[in-house]
Amino acid sequence: MSLTRVAQSLPLEFRLNGRHVALEVKPHETLLEVLRERVGLTGTKLSCDMQVCGACTVLLDGLPVSSCTSLAFEARGKEVLTIEGLSDGRKLHPLQEAFIRCGGFQCGFCTAGMIMAAKALLDEQPNPTVEEIKHFMKGNICRCTGYQMIIESIQEASRLLGQPGKEA
């Protein structure tokens, strides 16, 4: 393999949590690596590294993806939303409020991914049934809570978001 090939770098411009980001990436850099190591947003977690656990979930143009198994260059021209982009820094997002209120986490390692997946669900289906929540969240694994309180958190967030004056 020649050095020029290894040194290939690609311009990457995308919107990250509403802000324009421009940098150069290697073809093999994952979105997760760029978020955590290049941009410094460490809310998104690396866990299984094989699209099974959901800890690294971010929204790419509104859809939940595993950032551990997404190549960064594919975010070109897209909108990436991470846990850091949910709240404005002063007031928590209703999903965050609901997870706190209902005890939807213990160690918290899966929480960013849980909340981002739940955001995608509620954007698509504002009033999901328990079955719909279970189906959508099936790919997000929590080793602490036993899931019941996560389901309750999402139901609570759905209620909070349904109240006037709350924005998703």
Partner: peptide, 12 residues
Amino acid sequence: ERQIANVRVRAS
């Protein structure tokens, strides 16, 4: 298709 893997794999 709805049953394949998980929601993230289905999106990609």
